[in-house]
Design a protein around this nucleic acid. Structure first.
Length: 327
DNA sequence: CAACGCCTTCTCCCTTAAAC
DNA sequence: GTTTAAGGGAGAAGGCGTTG
């Protein structure tokens, strides 16, 4: 099982000459490599469980904790370490047979397994970024109207605070986009928005209630579109049952949403609205990782569990109506 | 009524480009 | 020089129409 993935890729056996197969074979291109199932599972893990993590490290640390056993070792962990361990256990649950495979593996093999999963996470993230880049323009364009100025689907430079419409959506809740001075400062970078200052597009009807943090939070139509785009298929947004191919949720047996998947989608949507060309989890301009973690922090907060439960229920009805029992 | 093949849709993967 | 993401293209899945 360990190296079955290299089965039919002998043409790259020693990596010395990478000749495009079409130069070697006649006829249509054959599938070169069978993707390791771990990569595939990694895609889902990144989207629905934990987007930003170093999987080899997660595995290595997780194995150590697992072998130590006892619940008192868990108590001694920092908050971050405990979160990492929760993600680790979720990973074991999601990937069938991973636990026994890890236990039978050497340190190096564990790292290799981690890298395969990591590859899936990164690949899925890149694909979703690409897909949303064009689609998000459709969602933010008012029905029957056009954006002015027009934003091309494949260009990002005119977005972010450079555009009236994307700027309004990205404007953090504490600031007033209608104020021309604020707008100028946001545009020229005089005001920088850190990831934990949430943009108004997260709220239902894009309106924020200073008296009530939860009012409309994470209930926006834009987020639902983004969520469907990534999880139930791009075409499921406008029309039911048009797609002839299964979307991500179905492929991965996902019947209900996860907290992390909301944060993931919000992060992707946020990036799609910005003028930033290149997705990076750490850069200071997009600050995507902090944005993601700040949402996760709220959703994981035990004190907020009532609100969060309501939110999840609402989302399940929006996105997975077939699996939600009618009440 | 069944079987075949077309066609749309979505994911996967490789190459290219850019950043560090 | 190495690593990382964007971009484009090919493959695969499954519904639907058509034909025998």
């Amino acid at each position: 099982m360990s190296n079955s993935s290299e089965g039919d890729s002998s043409w790259t056996a020693n990596g010395q000459k990478r000749v495009h197969p079409s130069a070697l074979e006649l006829g249509p291109r054959k599938k070169l490599t069978t993707q390791d199932p771990l990569v595939h599972r990694g895609c889902h893990f990144g989207r629905a469980v934990h987007a930003f993590c170093n999987v080899p490290t997660l595995l290595t640390n997780g194995i150590i904790l697992l072998s130590e056993g006892g619940s008192d070792t868990l108590e001694s962990l920092t908050v971050d370490e405990r979160k990492e361990f929760v993600a680790f256990r979720e990973l074991l649950r999601v990937v069938l047979g991973l636990e026994s495979r890890l236990m039978a593996s050497s340190k190096e093999e564990v790292v290799e397994i981690g890298e395969l999963i990591q590859k899936g996470i990164n690949g899925a993230c890149a694909d979703n970024t690409k897909g949303m880049k064009g689609a998000i323009i459709d969602w933010i364009t008012p029905k029957g109207q056009a954006l002015s100025p027009h934003i091309p689907r494949n260009v990002k430079s005119g977005r972010g605070f450079n555009h009236e419409h994307t700027g309004a959506l990205l404007c953090p809740t504490g600031l007033d986009w209608t104020n021309i001075q604020t707008r100028t400062k946001l545009m020229n970078g005089e005001i920088q928005v850190p990831g934990d200052q949430w943009p108004v597009f997260l709220y239902a009807d894009y309106s924020y209630d200073p008296e009530d943090l939860w009012n409309g939070l994470l209930w926006s139509g834009l987020l639902v579109s983004a969520y469907k785009h990534i999880f139930t298929s791009p075409s499921s947004i406008d029309h039911e049952l048009k797609a002839t191919r299964s979307g991500n949720a179905r492929i991965h047996g996902m019947h209900c949403m996860t907290k992390a998947s909301i944060a993931y989608v919000a992060m992707q949507a946020r990036f799609g609205l910005t003028s930033a060309q290149i997705f990076s989890c750490t850069d200071l301009i997009t600050d995507s990782e902090r944005f993601y973690s700040s949402i996760m922090e709220l959703l994981d907060d035990p004190d907020e569990s009532d609100e969060v439960d309501q939110l999840i229920t609402w989302w399940n009805r929006q996105v997975f109506p077939l699996y939600t029992t009618t009440e």
